[in-house]
Design a protein around this nucleic acid. Structure first.
Lengths: 154, 154
DNA sequence: CATTAATAGTTGCACTCGCAACTAAGTCAA
DNA sequence: TTGACTTAGTTGCGAGTGCAACTATTAATG
């Protein structure tokens, strides 16, 4: 009737750790791409990608869709605007909100990075096998959806 | 003979993005645990966990094993030492290196957090199903191992 | 040996992040 | 319409991070 030996804990078998390592490994080289080409932050890239995908929307919409904190979005929007990649225009329905839209230049860059992202993603999936990659997608989405299973409540 | 429409790029199908979201979702609540209980950083927790698992080793060993940047390790070690959770002693073989070892207090905390980590990990795996979780482990390890498949080389 | 290169670890700096506090605008109800 | 409450977005601040430069020591090479 042994208790599990607590010194048995092994980071290498800890799912959050593995997910982090995998995320960092796969993010790093693509991050280098958009950073080198356009001096972009990961958050900026994500905001750009959302606007590219969905068209005009407010900062709040981006927060809701992508689960990025509003302060990160706010700063990313400022930076992208300063670079001339997006414009803000006041929302007619709500004067607190601003409608964000990519400029032509923003769309060009989104097209470029989008293409490279697709290529990178395909290379990744090819390495682990396309069917398995599809399974992986499902698993990750489930984990994301389960979201926080509240703290261990000990 | 269409080129793939570049506006088709969808963050939600981008593996690095999914991995990141999943990693953040699973890390967040456990991060809250060690932060609240011991005011620890993720890097500090990882250094502690490595020392707990492998016993005495140098900072460089930790870097090699866990792929954490040496500056992060350096600062984490300083912080853990300041908290009295580890000691440094000069290496007899190499006067540049220091041998790191957990103090009794460090081991107690490692035991505590290790236990909680195991519980958290098991809860996570239970949610997605244990067999599937095992598959996920394999996949993640493969992705980590493939490591950087060099930048797209376009 | 003497020099040059490599390595262990630290530090300075510029930047990103997370959180709380804040402004401005909209909502709801008495 | 006034007052309490919520929401969109911004800003200040403390803290963590990445990168490059640096010290001290060890290894390698002529």
């Amino acid at each position: 009737m042994d208790m599990p030996d607590t010194t048995d804990f092994d980071l290498e078998r800890f799912l959050p750790y593995l997910l982090n390592q995998a995320a960092e490994a796969t993010s790093r080289s693509f991050h280098a791409t958009y950073k080198a080409s356009y001096g972009m932050t990961r958050t900026q890239w994500r905001v750009l990608a959302n606007l590219g995908k969905f068209g005009s929307m407010t900062a709040r919409d981006i927060c809701t869709i992508s689960h990025i904190e509003k302060t990160k979005v706010s700063r990313a929007v400022s930076a992208l605007e300063a670079e001339g990649l997006l414009t803000r225009s006041p929302s007619p329905q709500d004067r607190r909100a601003e409608i964000l839209a990519l400029t032509d230049q923003g769309r060009v860059i989104f097209a470029d990075l989008g293409q490279r992202a697709i290529a990178y993603d395909q290379a990744l999936r090819a390495q682990i096998g396309p069917e398995i990659a599809a399974q992986l997608d499902d698993l990750l989405r489930r984990i994301i959806a389960e979201g926080e299973l509240g703290p261990p409540e000990d």
